[in-house]
Amino acid sequence: MSSSAKIWASIIVSGLMLGTTAHAAEPGSYGVGATPTSDQIAQWSIAIKPDGSNLPPGSGTVSQGADIYGNECAACHGTFGEGAAAYPKLAGGVGTLKTQKLKTVGSFWPYAPILYDYINRAMPFYAPRSLTSNQVYAISAYILNLNNIVPDDFVANAKTLAAVKMPNRDGFIFKDPRPLTHDVECMSHCADAKALVITSDASKAGITPKTTGPVDNMQGSSAK
Protein backbone atom coordinates (compact mmCIF):
# COMPACT_ATOMS: atom_id res chain seq x y z
CA MET A 1 0.00 0.00 0.00
CA SER A 2 1.31 3.45 -0.86
CA SER A 3 1.67 5.94 1.98
CA SER A 4 -1.26 8.00 0.66
CA ALA A 5 -3.38 4.85 0.50
CA LYS A 6 -2.45 4.15 4.12
CA ILE A 7 -3.55 7.62 5.11
CA TRP A 8 -6.87 7.16 3.31
CA ALA A 9 -7.33 3.79 4.94
CA SER A 10 -6.75 5.30 8.36
CA ILE A 11 -9.21 8.11 7.62
CA ILE A 12 -11.84 5.57 6.59
CA VAL A 13 -11.18 3.56 9.77
CA SER A 14 -11.53 6.68 11.94
CA GLY A 15 -14.74 7.47 10.08
CA LEU A 16 -16.07 4.04 10.93
CA MET A 17 -15.04 4.51 14.54
CA LEU A 18 -16.81 7.87 14.68
CA GLY A 19 -19.85 6.08 13.32
CA THR A 20 -19.57 3.54 16.13
CA THR A 21 -19.28 6.30 18.73
CA ALA A 22 -22.36 8.04 17.40
CA HIS A 23 -24.21 4.75 17.52
CA ALA A 24 -23.09 4.31 21.15
CA ALA A 25 -25.00 7.46 22.09
CA GLU A 26 -28.29 5.75 21.19
CA PRO A 27 -30.38 4.99 24.27
CA GLY A 28 -29.76 1.51 25.60
CA SER A 29 -26.74 0.90 23.41
CA TYR A 30 -24.37 0.28 26.31
CA GLY A 31 -26.68 -2.60 27.08
CA VAL A 32 -26.17 -2.83 30.83
CA GLY A 33 -29.02 -3.07 33.34
CA ALA A 34 -32.61 -4.21 33.16
CA THR A 35 -35.61 -2.51 31.61
CA PRO A 36 -38.12 -2.04 34.43
CA THR A 37 -41.69 -3.16 33.93
CA SER A 38 -44.46 -0.58 34.13
CA ASP A 39 -45.51 -2.16 37.44
CA GLN A 40 -42.01 -1.65 38.83
CA ILE A 41 -41.96 1.96 37.65
CA ALA A 42 -45.35 2.57 39.29
CA GLN A 43 -44.14 1.11 42.59
CA TRP A 44 -41.05 3.33 42.63
CA SER A 45 -42.83 6.44 41.46
CA ILE A 46 -43.85 8.15 44.71
CA ALA A 47 -43.00 11.77 43.87
CA ILE A 48 -46.02 14.09 43.80
CA LYS A 49 -45.87 17.35 41.89
CA PRO A 50 -47.15 20.71 43.16
CA ASP A 51 -50.12 20.49 40.77
CA GLY A 52 -51.12 17.20 42.43
CA SER A 53 -50.14 14.98 39.55
CA ASN A 54 -49.23 11.46 40.63
CA LEU A 55 -51.40 11.70 43.75
CA PRO A 56 -52.82 8.19 44.23
CA PRO A 57 -56.47 7.12 44.49
CA GLY A 58 -58.03 7.27 47.95
CA SER A 59 -59.31 9.90 50.37
CA GLY A 60 -59.44 10.92 54.01
CA THR A 61 -61.51 13.27 56.16
CA VAL A 62 -60.49 15.79 58.82
CA SER A 63 -62.03 13.70 61.63
CA GLN A 64 -60.35 10.50 60.43
CA GLY A 65 -57.15 12.48 60.29
CA ALA A 66 -57.55 13.70 63.86
CA ASP A 67 -57.60 10.11 65.13
CA ILE A 68 -54.66 8.92 63.04
CA TYR A 69 -52.68 12.07 63.79
CA GLY A 70 -53.30 11.55 67.52
CA ASN A 71 -51.73 8.11 67.33
CA GLU A 72 -48.98 8.67 64.79
CA CYS A 73 -47.96 12.34 64.92
CA ALA A 74 -49.04 14.13 68.10
CA ALA A 75 -46.21 12.85 70.30
CA CYS A 76 -43.73 14.98 68.35
CA HIS A 77 -45.86 17.64 66.68
CA GLY A 78 -48.40 18.27 69.47
CA THR A 79 -52.13 17.48 69.41
CA PHE A 80 -52.91 20.74 67.63
CA GLY A 81 -49.68 21.04 65.66
CA GLU A 82 -48.10 23.21 68.34
CA GLY A 83 -44.97 21.05 68.43
CA ALA A 84 -43.42 19.07 71.27
CA ALA A 85 -39.88 19.62 72.52
CA ALA A 86 -37.86 20.85 69.56
CA TYR A 87 -39.89 19.00 66.91
CA PRO A 88 -41.43 21.15 64.21
CA LYS A 89 -44.64 23.06 64.79
CA LEU A 90 -47.18 22.34 62.07
CA ALA A 91 -49.75 25.07 62.73
CA GLY A 92 -49.82 28.78 63.38
CA GLY A 93 -47.21 31.35 62.52
CA VAL A 94 -49.16 33.13 59.78
CA GLY A 95 -47.85 36.68 59.50
CA THR A 96 -44.57 35.95 61.32
CA LEU A 97 -42.28 35.38 58.35
CA LYS A 98 -40.67 38.81 58.51
CA THR A 99 -39.95 38.75 62.23
CA GLN A 100 -40.22 35.60 64.37
CA LYS A 101 -40.08 33.41 61.27
CA LEU A 102 -42.36 30.66 62.56
CA LYS A 103 -42.39 28.35 59.57
CA THR A 104 -45.31 25.91 59.67
CA VAL A 105 -47.42 24.14 57.05
CA GLY A 106 -49.92 26.98 57.33
CA SER A 107 -47.56 29.92 57.42
CA PHE A 108 -44.88 28.71 55.03
CA TRP A 109 -45.52 25.67 52.85
CA PRO A 110 -46.50 26.68 49.31
CA TYR A 111 -48.22 23.52 47.99
CA ALA A 112 -50.75 21.19 49.64
CA PRO A 113 -49.85 18.15 47.45
CA ILE A 114 -46.27 18.41 48.76
CA LEU A 115 -47.69 17.93 52.26
CA TYR A 116 -49.03 14.57 51.09
CA ASP A 117 -45.73 13.82 49.35
CA TYR A 118 -43.67 14.53 52.46
CA ILE A 119 -45.87 12.63 54.93
CA ASN A 120 -45.97 9.69 52.53
CA ARG A 121 -42.20 9.55 51.97
CA ALA A 122 -40.81 10.52 55.36
CA MET A 123 -43.36 10.23 58.17
CA PRO A 124 -43.85 9.06 60.84
CA PHE A 125 -40.22 9.77 61.68
CA TYR A 126 -39.80 6.40 63.45
CA ALA A 127 -41.75 4.36 60.87
CA PRO A 128 -41.62 6.05 57.46
CA ARG A 129 -43.83 4.68 54.69
CA SER A 130 -46.00 2.75 57.13
CA LEU A 131 -49.21 4.69 56.34
CA THR A 132 -51.81 3.86 53.71
CA SER A 133 -52.83 6.41 51.08
CA ASN A 134 -56.13 6.97 52.87
CA GLN A 135 -54.30 7.64 56.13
CA VAL A 136 -51.94 10.12 54.46
CA TYR A 137 -54.90 11.91 52.90
CA ALA A 138 -56.65 12.04 56.27
CA ILE A 139 -53.61 13.39 58.13
CA SER A 140 -53.11 15.99 55.38
CA ALA A 141 -56.74 17.06 55.77
CA TYR A 142 -56.37 17.36 59.56
CA ILE A 143 -53.15 19.44 59.36
CA LEU A 144 -54.68 21.78 56.77
CA ASN A 145 -57.75 22.10 59.01
CA LEU A 146 -55.58 22.88 62.06
CA ASN A 147 -54.28 25.79 60.02
CA ASN A 148 -57.79 26.93 59.09
CA ILE A 149 -57.00 26.39 55.42
CA VAL A 150 -59.81 23.86 54.85
CA PRO A 151 -63.19 23.47 56.62
CA ASP A 152 -64.10 20.75 59.11
CA ASP A 153 -65.96 18.76 56.46
CA PHE A 154 -63.03 18.75 54.01
CA VAL A 155 -62.30 15.44 52.32
CA ALA A 156 -58.76 15.19 50.98
CA ASN A 157 -58.22 13.35 47.70
CA ALA A 158 -56.17 13.86 44.55
CA LYS A 159 -58.53 16.51 43.22
CA THR A 160 -59.26 18.50 46.40
CA LEU A 161 -55.65 18.65 47.60
CA ALA A 162 -54.53 20.01 44.24
CA ALA A 163 -57.20 22.70 44.49
CA VAL A 164 -56.08 24.00 47.91
CA LYS A 165 -54.37 27.39 47.70
CA MET A 166 -51.84 27.68 50.49
CA PRO A 167 -51.50 31.11 52.18
CA ASN A 168 -47.80 31.41 51.34
CA ARG A 169 -48.18 30.11 47.77
CA ASP A 170 -46.45 33.18 46.33
CA GLY A 171 -43.91 33.62 49.11
CA PHE A 172 -40.94 32.08 47.34
CA ILE A 173 -38.28 33.37 44.98
CA PHE A 174 -36.89 30.49 42.97
CA LYS A 175 -34.35 32.51 41.04
CA ASP A 176 -31.07 32.82 42.90
CA PRO A 177 -30.14 36.52 43.01
CA ARG A 178 -26.64 35.86 44.35
CA PRO A 179 -23.96 37.05 44.40
CA LEU A 180 -25.43 39.66 46.70
CA THR A 181 -22.14 41.42 47.49
CA HIS A 182 -19.76 42.85 44.94
CA ASP A 183 -16.65 43.76 46.88
CA VAL A 184 -13.31 44.55 45.31
CA GLU A 185 -10.18 42.97 46.67
CA CYS A 186 -8.99 45.82 48.93
CA MET A 187 -5.48 45.21 50.31
CA SER A 188 -4.72 48.20 52.54
CA HIS A 189 -6.62 50.74 54.66
CA CYS A 190 -9.79 48.73 53.97
CA ALA A 191 -11.39 49.70 57.28
CA ASP A 192 -10.92 52.40 59.90
CA ALA A 193 -8.62 50.78 62.46
CA LYS A 194 -9.73 53.16 65.21
CA ALA A 195 -13.40 52.38 64.65
CA LEU A 196 -12.96 48.58 64.95
CA VAL A 197 -14.80 47.16 67.93
CA ILE A 198 -15.46 43.59 68.98
CA THR A 199 -19.24 43.30 68.93
CA SER A 200 -19.44 39.70 70.13
CA ASP A 201 -17.08 37.13 71.63
CA ALA A 202 -17.99 33.44 71.61
CA SER A 203 -15.71 32.72 74.57
CA LYS A 204 -18.18 34.68 76.71
CA ALA A 205 -21.34 32.98 75.37
CA GLY A 206 -20.81 29.73 77.29
CA ILE A 207 -22.76 27.53 74.85
CA THR A 208 -19.91 25.69 73.11
CA PRO A 209 -19.78 21.93 73.63
CA LYS A 210 -16.33 20.68 74.67
CA THR A 211 -13.80 20.38 71.88
CA THR A 212 -11.53 17.86 73.62
CA GLY A 213 -12.16 14.52 75.25
CA PRO A 214 -15.13 12.30 74.41
CA VAL A 215 -18.10 13.72 72.49
CA ASP A 216 -19.88 16.21 74.75
CA ASN A 217 -23.66 15.64 74.74
CA MET A 218 -24.10 18.53 77.20
CA GLN A 219 -26.34 16.41 79.42
CA GLY A 220 -27.00 18.33 82.61
CA SER A 221 -25.63 21.49 81.11
CA SER A 222 -27.59 24.67 81.58
CA ALA A 223 -27.06 25.64 77.94
CA LYS A 224 -30.49 25.79 76.31
Partner: peptide, 30 residues
Amino acid sequence: TDPWYTHEETASYTELLPNGKALGFTWVAE
Protein backbone atom coordinates in the same frame (compact mmCIF):
# COMPACT_ATOMS: atom_id res chain seq x y z
CA THR B 1 -40.54 18.96 32.73
CA ASP B 2 -40.37 21.15 35.86
CA PRO B 3 -38.95 21.18 39.39
CA TRP B 4 -40.86 19.14 41.97
CA TYR B 5 -40.66 21.85 44.68
CA THR B 6 -40.12 19.15 47.27
CA HIS B 7 -40.17 19.57 51.05
CA GLU B 8 -36.37 20.02 50.98
CA GLU B 9 -36.59 22.88 48.48
CA THR B 10 -39.62 24.70 49.90
CA ALA B 11 -40.36 23.94 53.58
CA SER B 12 -36.65 23.54 54.34
CA TYR B 13 -33.35 24.66 52.78
CA THR B 14 -34.92 27.98 51.78
CA GLU B 15 -33.96 31.23 53.46
CA LEU B 16 -36.38 33.88 54.67
CA LEU B 17 -35.30 37.37 53.67
CA PRO B 18 -36.09 40.44 55.82
CA ASN B 19 -39.10 41.16 53.55
CA GLY B 20 -40.71 37.81 54.45
CA LYS B 21 -40.04 36.20 51.06
CA ALA B 22 -38.10 32.95 50.98
CA LEU B 23 -35.15 32.36 48.69
CA GLY B 24 -35.19 28.92 47.10
CA PHE B 25 -32.85 27.10 44.72
CA THR B 26 -29.77 28.76 46.22
CA TRP B 27 -27.72 25.89 44.90
CA VAL B 28 -24.18 27.21 44.57
CA ALA B 29 -21.92 27.42 47.62
CA GLU B 30 -20.38 30.89 47.45
